[in-house]
Nucleic acid binder design. Structure first.
Length: 292
RNA sequence: GGACCUAUAGCCAAGUGGUAAGGCACGGGACUGCAACUCCCUGAUCGUUGGUUCAAAUCCGACUAGGUCCU
């Protein structure tokens, strides 16, 4: 029984690799991509299609509506339940995804205390919030401008009396797993991402965004592609601008992902992606796994 | 051939005599509750060259490049 975790920035072929390995090892796949848990988004988040799945069971995908509230804690709870079940059945598991935060919450000792409500701090300035956070927990390193984090910290404290400390359990792995990282030279990756946006357009990204926009599903406006193309339907910019901005934001996202994977994970086995002959990449990873 | 305009970081761009705003991109980083989120850090001596001045990106001349117009 093995747990393999495939990470890497968007557009490096994690999905394709996961299918190839799953078929070979007779494994089941657990999605670790924050956007792919939502039913209503498909093309823009590069979700795997039914045909591409080739019968491999996928978990934690299409499990909630974009209309619902969903957080890492929910993900952690259900994903662990599934992972534990698969382990108990002695099945091979492949965890695939680009959301470092979710992967860490799933596999490491991240603790989330239940909380019933969110408090509102709209009447306070960033400086006021920061001052309070400093009083409660002087060692915090939340920046004054990071209002979202400040509010989160205070809300959690005011509701539960607990302090969010980022260090606890951060690097304490709860499972035994192998980390496989897919990577490519920046320029090559960026070219690929640019091209991918155009392919998504051909696949009907505009239609998908249009439907979501008319359905009023605003959470999708947080996702790359959806955010930009919604501006078109609002009449704020033309299609070309939407495309360029989507490309740009994909690149920035990939860069942020690198920061996570390179600095928050230890012991990653990195593999250079061969875009032209992806089977080579699959072979390399596969051979490596056989030696374990 | 002549007249005029422009020339500041990869891009856009402020600055009109006292030693270079800002935005975007790129790069680096943080991140235990919307994470494809949120946030932080990083760059130039002002086309070249003479001159005026205590002091020039800022004034004058020449040159170069780009643009507009005229014959």
């Amino acid at each position: 029984m093995k747990i393999i975790v495939i990470i890497g920035p968007t557009g490096t072929g994690k999905t394709e690799l996961s299918i190839a390995l799953a078929k070979k090892m007779n494994a089941e796949i657990i999605n670790a991509d924050a956007t792919q848990v939502y039913k209503e988004v498909n093309i823009g988040v590069a979700k795997i299609t039914e045909e591409q799945k080739q019968g491999i069971p996928h978990h934690m995908m299409d499990i909630v509506s974009i209309k619902d509230d969903y957080t890492v804690m929910d993900y952690q709870r259900s994903a662990r339940k599934i992972l534990d079940k698969l382990i108990s059945e002695n099945k091979n598991v492949i965890i695939v995804g680009g959301t470092g935060f979710y992967i860490k919450a799933l596999l490491y000792d991240y603790k989330f205390a239940p909380e019933k409500e969110k408090l509102n701090y709209d009447d306070k300035t960033n400086e006021e919030l920061k001052r309070r956070v400093d009083e409660i927990f002087p060692q915090n390193d939340i920046h004054v401008n990071n209002r979202k984090r400040l509010e989160r910290f205070l809300s959690h404290y005011d509701v539960t009396g607990e302090i969010i400390k980022s260090t606890e359990g951060k690097n304490k792995a709860l499972y035994d797993f192998v980390l496989i990282g897919l990577t490519a030279p920046r320029e090559e990756l960026y070219n690929h991402l640019n091209k991918r946006v155009e392919i998504m357009m051909c696949d009907g990204l505009c239609e998908e965004v249009k439907n979501l926009y008319h359905a009023g599903l605003t959470k999708a406006e947080n996702f790359i592609g959806y955010k930009e193309f919604t501006k078109y339907y609002k009449g704020e910019q033309n299609i070309i601008e939407c495309m360029e901005e989507t490309k740009k934001n994909s690149r920035k996202y990939a860069k942020r992902q690198y920061t996570w994977f390179l600095n928050q994970f230890e012991g990653v086995n990195w593999f250079q992606v061969d875009y032209k002959h992806f089977t080579n990449t699959i072979k390399k990873v596969s051979t490596f796994l056989d030696t374990l």
